[in-house]
């Protein structure tokens, strides 16, 4: 069942169109990803959903509410972790949680929440003394303090080191498992691929596709890549002549051969016929980044 419905959303800043006719639905209980390069319009989209910005066109429903008209009601059902939002330097973690808990008629037990987020020993620590990962976890705690049905998390792991990032990922899964629908905004392919049940791919303000990670990848399926370093120079045209091969690229000493069918066999037997030894040979299946290139016609630049 859909808990968020966005239809033909349009948002302009002055004359620049930041979001251009985006539609998608988010189902109850899923982790829904909004993935796209920087400046694609992800944050603008979710800020319209949160009621922080008023759309220039289209309709939005969150749990049946219009974010502009039912702003107050929406606030109790939607928890938000903003892309850029800090707390006062000297506020202690426990004080912040206690304060924000007082804003809701029915709030979560903040001590339990902090324990779940592995912050129990930071209750008396001032905000400015927290690490980046801890600050993000405090942000998550504040997004969950009002017992929301939906949590919107915007660029949750940007600026975190790989370990903190992975820890945060398992937290997001825990949130979903506790029954909260999660909208995860990110520009990390890997994050979306790893966490999301479904992904809306956004590029330059437009929706490119909505599908599961596997579904997106399957759109370029059958396509594989073989990488290797030829030990002796040879005529690349020989590769291009093979029916299985669609593209050959040279990356320094490395060759990247893209194609379908039994690509590996075709390439290796051709090399054997010509007495070329292939070093560091590797085969790669298509991933989300290939899907992005295929769907938008350009590479995903972070």
């Amino acid at each position: 069942m859909a808990i968020i419905e966005v239809v033909d959303l349009v948002k302009r800043y002055d004359r620049k169109v930041a979001v251009d006719g985006v539609s998608f639905t988010v189902d109850e209980g899923e982790i829904f990803g909004i993935l796209g390069p920087n400046g694609a319009g992800k944050t603008t989209t979710v800020e319209c959903v949160e009621g922080l910005r008023s759309p220039d066109g289209g309709t939005i429903r969150v749990d049946g509410l219009d974010p502009q008209r039912d702003r107050v009601k929406l606030r109790t059902r939607l928890g938000v972790q903003l892309q850029q939002s800090e707390l006062p330097d000297r506020i202690r973690v426990g004080e912040a949680l206690d304060l924000y808990a007082s804003f809701y008629r029915d709030s979560a037990d903040w001590r339990e929440l902090l324990a779940r987020l592995d912050l129990a020993d930071r209750v008396r620590t001032e905000y400015r003394k927290l690490s980046g990962g801890q600050k993000q976890r405090v942000s998550i705690a504040l997004a969950l303090i009002g017992k929301p049905k939906v949590a919107v998390l915007d660029e949750l792991t940007t600026g975190l080191d790989p370990q903190a990032r992975r820890d945060t990922w398992s937290l997001v899964e825990q949130i979903r498992d506790s029954g909260v629908t999660v909208v995860l905004v990110t520009h990390f392919m890997e994050e979306a691929e790893r966490l999301c049940d479904r992904i809306a791919l956004i590029d330059a303000g437009r929706l490119v596709a909505v599908d599961s990670p596997a579904g997106l990848v399957s759109r370029v399926d059958g396509e594989q890549r073989v990488r290797f370093r030829p030990a002796t120079p040879f005529d690349v045209a020989l590769l291009e002549e093979l029916p299985e091969v669609s593209k050959v690229e040279e990356h320094g000493p490395q060759l990247v051969v893209t194609g379908t069918g039994n690509l590996l066999h075709a390439v290796t037997s051709m090399l054997a016929r010509n007495h070329v030894v292939a070093a560091d040979l590797r085969i790669e299946q298509a991933g989300l980044d290939d899907a992005f290139i295929r769907l938008t016609g350009r590479t995903f630049t972070e």
Binding site: E50, R75, T76, L78, L82, S85, P88, Y104
Partner: peptide
């Protein structure tokens, strides 16, 4: 900080 407030009731 003000923005975060405006996400609450």
């Amino acid at each position: 900080v003000l923005r975060r407030f405006s996400t609450t009731p």
